[in-house]
Write a protein that binds this DNA or RNA. Structure first.
Lengths: 342, 342
DNA sequence: GTGAAAGCGCTAACAG
DNA sequence: CTGTTAGCGCTTTCAC
C-alpha cells in the first residue's frame, strides 16, 4: 500500500527512538543538535522518503512564504513578463507565488483578494482592474499590516507601495521625439481619463507641445480604450478633420499598429507623410513593417522590483512608515514609424 | 490595536456563548444547525470581520484546493494563455493556482515539484523543461495517487494524463499545404529530436513528402533550438546547399519570422520565390509583413481542458485506471507567407 | 441541534 | 544536546 498517509516527523522519531522535536530541529538545521544525530536523522528521512508538510509548518509559524499576485489578465505580455520577474525573485528567496486574474472585473477582484487573504499570503502584489473604483477589500491587508505593492494601475488615494512608470515623462518624451523628427501637427490617442496613468501621459503630451510653442488643439486628442478597432476609428476621425495631424502618439502599440495598417492601406507613407509612436513595446512592435517606435515599459524589471520590495517589507520587523513609490524609467525606442530624419 | 491576532471561530463562539464547533458548522452551512443560530453566527462573523483561516482548514481536511502549475517560462504566449485557461476553470471551481517556472532547467524543475508537493497541492499540471530527461520527482505525486496532467512537452514513458497537440498531423498538414501551393523542394527546421513533439512533427513532414512522392533529402532537415538566431543560421545554411529548397516548414513562428527577415533583406520574394509556414500562431504572426502562415495551438483551450481534467480527477473518489491522452486539434491558418496560389 | 475533545503535522517554550 | 508539552485554527467524531 502506498496510499498510506504520508510519513511525518513522528514516524522518523519512532524509527530512531528519539523525539519528534529533535527530528524537527535536525531537519531545520538547528545548531543545538549534534552533527552526528543530524546526519542520522537526515539519512533516515531520506530513506523513508519523508516530505515535510508545509501546511502544518505554515499554520504553526503563522507564515506561508507565499505571495499573492492579482492582475487583470495573465495572458498579456506586460503582465506575464511582470509576473515572471516576481516569480524569479520570489523563488530565489523561498517564496511561492499564487496568481489570480481579475479579468478586469471588480467583483472577481474582490473575491480573489479575500481568497488570498484567507490563504494567509505574506504579502500582495496587485494591479487594479479597469472597473476598480473602491478599495475596501485591500483594507483587509493594510489593517493587519500585511504589505501590499501596487503596480501599473494604481490610485494615488491608496496608502501602499507603488511601482509605476513615469507617465508624464512618457507623454513628454514621445511628443518631443515627434517634434524633433519634424512633425508639425501632433495628435494623441489617449486611454480613458478616469485612469491616472492616461491623464498623466496626456499632460506630458501637452507640456511638450507647450515647450515648443505648438498649438494645443483639443480636436487632436481622442479618448477610447485603445483596442485595435479604437485605433482604426481614431485615425479615420483624425484624417477627416479640416486640418488633419501629420503624426500621432498612441497610448499603446496595439492602437498604433492598427493605425499603421489603415494608413498603409490608404496609401499614406510612414514615416514620410505620417509619424507614429506607441507605448509599451509589444513583441510585435519590432517586427512589423514599418517597425513601431515606442517607449519600453520594463515589465520584467518592474516585477523584480515589486518582488524585492514586498519581500523586504515582509521580512523587516518594522513596517515602513512611509509608502514608497518607485517610478521606473521608460526608454524611448526609435524605430521606423517615426524616423523621418536620419 | 489592529495588529491583534486575527479573530477565530473561538472568538465568535465566546461572544455568542456557544461552542466553536457550532460556529464552524454554521459557517460551513451544516444542515444540522438551525437556521436561526446560523443567521446569528453569520451576522456576528460579519460584524467582527472574521476571515476564515484556510491554512488551518487545509491542514485538518488534508486538502488545499490548490493546484500547482509548472511551466518552462510564464512569459511566453503559449504558456501564459494556457495558464490563463487553467486559472479560469480553477477559480470557477474554488481552486487556487500556484505557478512556477522552471526556466527550462531540470534542477529548478525538481525543486519546484518538491516544493509544490510539500505545499500539498491537490494536483499538478506540468510541461517539462527542455532538459528534463528523468522523471523521479514526479513519482512523488504518482506514488501518493495525486493526479498529474502533463501538457505540451510530455514523454510517452510517463504514466499520467496528457494534453497534446497532434504533432504528426501538424507536420503533415503544414507540409501538404506547401506542396499544394506548388513548392517543389521543402525543408524542415525542427527542434531537438530528444523531444517527442519534434520527432512527431518531423515524421508528419516525412509522411507528407512520401504521400506526394517527393524525395526526402536529409540535408533539408535541420535541428536546433528554434530561436531567432537559429532561424537565421538555418536559412543561410539551406540557401547554401547545391540544391536549395524553395519552401520551409519551421518548428515555430519565431524562427519563421527570422527567416523572413533574412530573406527580405537579401531580396528573396515571399511567397513568390519562397514559401514559409511556422507553428503556434504567435501574436506577431498576423501582423508582420508578409503575415506568417502557421498552425494555431489552442493554448487557452488546452489550459481549460487540463484544468477540468485535473479537477475532475481530484474530486472523483476513484482514480482513473487508464491514463487519458487528449489530442487537441490544430488549425492551419493560411496567410501571406505561403499563399502562392489564390 | 449543540458541546467536548481529539487531532491534522509541525515548532518552540521550557525544562533538564 | 534532547524530551515534554502545548498550541497554531479548524473540523469531526462521539456524546447528550
Amino acid at each position: 500500500m502506498d496510499t498510506k498517509a504520508s510519513i511525518t516527523i513522528h514516524d522518523i522519531a519512532r524509527e530512531l527512538n528519539i523525539s519528534a522535536s529533535t527530528v524537527s530541529r535536525a531537519l531545520n538545521n538547528n545548531p543545538r543538535i549534534s552533527k552526528e544525530t543530524k546526519d542520522r536523522i537526515k539519512a533516515k528521512a531520506l530513506e523513508m522518503g519523508y516530505q515535510p508538510n508545509t501546511i502544518a509548518s505554515n499554520l504553526r509559524n503563522q507564515k506561508t512564504n507565499t505571495i499573492g499576485i492579482v492582475v487583470p489578465l495573465i495572458n498579456r505580455h506586460f503582465f506575464s513578463a511582470f509576473i515572471s520577474g516576481v516569480e524569479e525573485v520570489a523563488f530565489a528567496k523561498g517564496y511561492n507565488v499564487i496568481i489570480s486574474q481579475s479579468n478586469d472585473l471588480l467583483e472577481k477582484e474582490k473575491q480573489i483578494v479575500h481568497s488570498l487573504f484567507s490563504n494567509r499570503v505574506d504579502g500582495l502584489i496587485a494591479s487594479l482592474s479597469m472597473q476598480t473604483n473602491e478599495f475596501d477589500h485591500y483594507q483587509l491587508f493594510s489593517k493587519k499590516k500585511i504589505p501590499i505593492v501596487f503596480f501599473d494601475r494604481v490610485v494615488p488615494e491608496l496608502e501602499a507601495h507603488k511601482i509605476v512608470v513615469d507617465d508624464f515623462g512618457v507623454g513628454f518624451k514621445a511628443t518631443e521625439h515627434l517634434i524633433e523628427q519634424g512633425y508639425k501637427r501632433i495628435a494623441h490617442l489617449a486611454g480613458p481619463t478616469v485612469l491616472h496613468t492616461y491623464r498623466d501621459r496626456m499632460n506630458g503630451y501637452r507640456a511638450a507641445l507647450e515647450k515648443y510653442n505648438f498649438e494645443i488643439d483639443e480636436n487632436l486628442i481622442i479618448h477610447n480604450r485603445l483596442t485595435r478597432i479604437d485605433g482604426q476609428d481614431a485615425i479615420k476621425q483624425l484624417l477627416a478633420l479640416p486640418q488633419p495631424p501629420d503624426a500621432v502618439f498612441c497610448g499603446n502599440d496595439t492602437s498604433a499598429l492598427s493605425m499603421i495598417v489603415y494608413l498603409k492601406k490608404i496609401g499614406v507613407r510612414i514615416p514620410e507623410d505620417f509619424g507614429i509612436i506607441g507605448f509599451s513595446d509589444e513583441p510585435f512592435s519590432e517586427v512589423v513593417t514599418p517597425s513601431i517606435s515606442t517607449l519600453k515599459q520594463p515589465a520584467f524589471d518592474m516585477g523584480v522590483k515589486a518582488g524585492e520590495l514586498l519581500i523586504q517589507e515582509i521580512e523587516s520587523k518594522t513596517r515602513l512608515k512611509e509608502h514608497v513609490t518607485y517610478t521606473v524609467p521608460t526608454e524611448l525606442i526609435q524605430r521606423e514609424s517615426s524616423s523621418r530624419k536620419k
